[in-house]
Design a protein around this nucleic acid. Sequence first.
DNA 1: TGTGGCTGCCC
DNA 2: ATTCTGC
DNA 3: GCAGAATGGGCAGCCACA
Length: 804
Amino acid sequence: GMTVKRKKLAGKLHGSDFFPFVLFTRMPAKQQTSLTSFFSGGKRKVSSVSRSPSPAAKRSKVETKTEITTIMATEEVEIVETITETKMEETVEVTPVSTDSEQSSVPQSKCLVKELEWRTKNLPEFQKTEAAMELSEFSQQQSTQQALRYKNTKFDPVEEATWQPGEPVPYLAVSRVMNAIDNTTKRLEIIELFSQFIRTVIVTTPSDLLKVIYLCTNQLAPSYKGIELGIGESILMKAIAESTQTSLKGIKSLYHKKGDLGTVARECRSAQRTMFKPKALSVQKVFDAFYEIALMKGHSSTSRKVDKIKGLLVCCQEYESTYIIRSLGGKLRIGLAGQSVLIAIAHAFMLTPPRPLSVPCEEGQHPLVLKLRAERKLSESELQTHLLRAESIVKQVFYQLPSFELMIPQLLAGNLLSLEEVCPMTPGIPLKPMLAHPTKGISEVLQRFENMTFTCEYKYDGERAQIHRLEDGSIKIYSRNAEDNTEKYPDLIELMPQIIQDATKTFVIDCEAVAFDTETKKILPFQVLSTRSKKAVQKEDIKVQVCLYAFDLIYLNGESLLKAPFSERRKALYSAFAEEEGKFTFATHAEMTDTEEIEAFLNKSIEDLCEGLMVKTLEVDASYEPSKRSHNWLKLKKDYLDDVGDSLDLVIIGGYKGRGKRTGVYGGFLLACYDAENDEYQSICKIGTGFSDANLAEFAEYFKSRELLEVPTYYRIPETGLPDVWFSPDRVVEVKAADLSISPNHKAGMGLVDPNKGISLRFPRYLGTREDKKPEDATDASQVATMYRAQANKQSDILPHDDL
DNA sequence: TGTGGCTGCCC
DNA sequence: ATTCTGC
DNA sequence: GCAGAATGGGCAGCCACA
């Protein structure tokens, strides 16, 4: 049974479900004044669960919305809090919709009818309905792994929505959720906030759900559709400057101070408010605006984009501008990304199941969602089991069909439990490729794979190529990030028929495309591969030949092999395809368990111009695990090993102001080697990884007294990407790199290996500070050149030179 | 028409 | 790509 | 150990502008 008590709130409340902002619409004005801290941007949150709003409060829903901005300005006072308490033998009421008399208050409006029509239109063929949501199907096995969630689940998505059922979802609501999520680092809390928001969309305006998901994952479409905003920091700053009548310089300096353009946009705006409130933004409007921006091309497209952004900015209230700008900048950085979104979706659809169309809507029921569990009481462990089950289904499905466009309509059709069948793996939809965990040595590999059979493969230095053959026989090639690279590789498309065996029809293979010198029959460096054209390539124009190294088979003749162990997948790969020398080869591999043997194989891989080894189990934990979810593969590279690989001692000559979580400290530095010949410092690379937070704080303090007003004449500095602040040469840091490269930008060793170009580092990272070294003791330009030559010798001097 | 800056995407 | 950090 | 967010070099492609 449930009891409701009135309590005084004395600080932060944990564990209750809430939408703080929603409360404004439902609490008497006197109490609303207490909720300032939420909107004032402070960390502290005040939460509340309010169960039985008075009819008067309910009716005033729309009117009270307008009061929010005034509330922001008031002081925080004591709050009277209504919370829900449950007894020891706790049961959790999972209510997809209101169960009491308020139920009938759900407007059966024209808007909702439209939602239903939308659903009919957008829902593919319908399977498994009636019993689909019967919870008793679940096993009652308990999980001990994760903490219980949704403890006092008395969340009513109909009540909590700040907009009416069937109305467009306001972008304001989305931005408020983003802000709430932004203000916590707790993942469970993030997931809960987002899943509850999804629930409100499911019961009100499900036709907006896909767009909500896209906005919150910062996508416009699946990446293989190649729809890009073409907006970056520069254009954003221009738009912010113009819309706030601030100089570009002013915006830049604010950006340095705040570390976030979104914040800059919001603060500039509030400084000069317009008299008239433009029409509020909706999810639909914002999404459409983003989409239009992405489609703008050709002459004056940039200024049209700027205008569009300005148009959005004038309509913004509260935190909307922050998240619009962050979205356009490509990084939401609120702590919610792919994995958490999937979990939130799963929980939302488990707790608020849409009513399948085949299930008639009975009198007094909500037209969009099932009332199935209205009377049903679940114990917390039961609830937990259901949530985990949903989580596992949604994740599994997204791994085999990573498309919200296809998954969301099925979920809205009430197909959560049959999702795996209605969303099968489909050639033509790229999977997130399986990734590998870096290991620091053979001993770590052996330790991780103790008592398991494993195989070692060459790790090729090229570009991931996931090649699909669709039902219609066409071939598609996708990149590591699911971009469509088909038109980049007409040569590979042409090659395919030669290597596909007769019995092989549809498939998905995992390969590395590597630049290849057909004369010497040797692998070429990544830098050569990257010079290939990307768009509308004609076979005759190809200058860099490519060899495919295939290493996995994920789908064959209509069947997913995701769950098959690697031993089987590889066997199937070998029989489904035929090698073609210099064009299509299976990745070199060997099975061994002995440390010395592995070391020898690692060395051999380097001699054969590879990056190192991939180590994969053959039987146990040997399924194909897409995405970053599980790094069951291991990678072993020479530069991971201590005391192996190129390590340099370099001088810090400049700093870059940090952004995001590095606001207020330097986020990166410009490094130089010392050139004794000319007694000057030559830029070699920037560095921004390898620092702990403590390191960065110490660096910021250290360089406070070493800032220079101008660039010293004895600095040879890069063409682009100049530091925000110059430093006197003083601190020497130890840096590790995977490779050295001829640089179009940096100046180290200029004239020593290339007349006009310097040398830079590939994958530089900070190892530590060399307190013992003076800047003149840093790695010398000639040493850098020597290191480059040593590496180039191994590659038999392959890099192209300018014809000068 | 050539060049440089910006963006997205490879690693 | 590499790396660090809160959970 | 996961998930997310900091940050690297360097290429093609596109657009603004001289």
